[in-house]
């Protein structure tokens, strides 16, 4: 009888001690990046999400989450009002003072960094999984994504590598083109193309002369940029674009921004899709995954 009572007390104490439970697993998570949100869903942990940012658009149910705003201008108190146990973010999250304030209030902020490479992608997935205490599932997911990616890369091989130009709108002013060290550049190379503008880093405004000199074979742009420009008619108005081989042959590839640039779980599919579009003479890939 005393033994039973003792056991019951111990059990009650263990259950009642919030510290113990919390130290194990973060039950309320705010994700501040579309790709991180995708990874959480891919790990099957979406029930733990209590907030997401404006770029968390996939899967569609993520849009129903409480909105914490644009990742570069977060609100400390706003995020804290969701009573999170963990905030997942990339280096893009800011302003830095707000991140500090969230940490000072006792909520850990896990900044997930990664390289723009297949290895880096795996690293990203594993980081998130570890933060969620799902290391095993993370390993499995990372391997699966790597397998998809490798399969896609195999198909590409040493085929003719077309010159691809990626650009997108960033509000007013000229469209920005992607140079080296960008997500777009990495995806282009993974999908069997080469970046038409490889002599600068980052995103820079599109220069008419550089555009003509680059003579890209394919134009790549995200869906929202095409809409913002006003469809194909709008594209024609971009100076210098109509003189490119890509325009003459009407080789314009449009893809969803998060899918293409997110560097998340669907990267394998994205690379496969992009590869198909860049090199149509490649045999159809049987990945069994829908776009």
């Amino acid at each position: 009888m005393n033994g039973n009572k003792g056991l019951a007390l111990l059990l009650a104490a263990a259950l009642a001690w919030p510290g113990a439970a919390r130290a194990e697993e973060a039950g309320r998570i705010v994700s501040v990046a579309g790709s991180l949100t995708e990874i959480v869903y891919a790990l099957g942990q979406e029930s733990r999400l209590v907030g997401a940012d404006t770029t968390s658009l996939y899967p569609p149910s993520a849009r129903a989450l409480p909105q914490v705003g644009y990742q570069r201008s977060l609100s400390a108190e706003g995020i804290l009002s969701l009573a999170p146990d963990l905030v997942l973010a990339t280096e893009a999250a800011g302003p830095p003072a707000v991140i500090d304030q969230i940490r000072a209030a006792g909520v850990p902020v896990r900044i997930v960094t990664h390289d723009l490479s297949p290895d880096g992608l795996g690293q990203k997935v594993r980081s998130v999984a570890e933060a969620l205490d799902r290391a095993e599932e993370g390993e499995r997911l990372a391997n699966r994504i790597r397998a998809e990616l490798d399969a896609a890369l195999l198909r590409v091989g040493a085929a003719r590598r077309p010159k691809v130009l990626f650009f997108m709108n960033a509000g007013r002013g000229a469209p920005l083109a992607a140079g080296r060290d960008t997500a777009a550049d990495a995806m282009i190379r993974l999908a069997g193309g080469q970046n038409a503008l490889a002599d600068f880093e980052g995103y820079k405004p599109l220069n008419t002369e550089a555009l003509t000199a680059a003579a890209p074979d394919v134009l790549l742009l995200p869906e929202h940029a095409l809409t913002a420009l006003g469809g194909e008619a709008g594209l024609a108005r971009v100076p210098g674009l109509t003189l490119t081989p890509a325009w003459r042959q009407r080789r314009i590839v449009v893809m969803d921004a998060l899918l293409l640039l997110g560097f998340g779980p669907r990267t394998g599919t994205a690379v496969a899709t992009l590869a198909r579009r860049l090199n149509p003479d490649l045999e159809a890939l049987e990945l069994g995954l829908d776009r």
């Binding site: 644009y70 570069r72 201008s73 977060l74 609100s75 400390a76 893009a92 800011g94 302003p95 830095p96 003072a97 707000v98 500090d100 304030q101 997108m168 960033a170 509000g171 007013r172 002013g173 000229a174 920005l176 980052g202 995103y203 820079k204 405004p205």
Partner: peptide, 24 residues
Amino acid sequence: TYLADDEQLRTLTFWSLGSLGGAT
């Protein structure tokens, strides 16, 4: 602004609208 890249541009836009967020 014309010379700014994507990341800088987004910082600029939000800063130019004014904000007391992150006040320390």
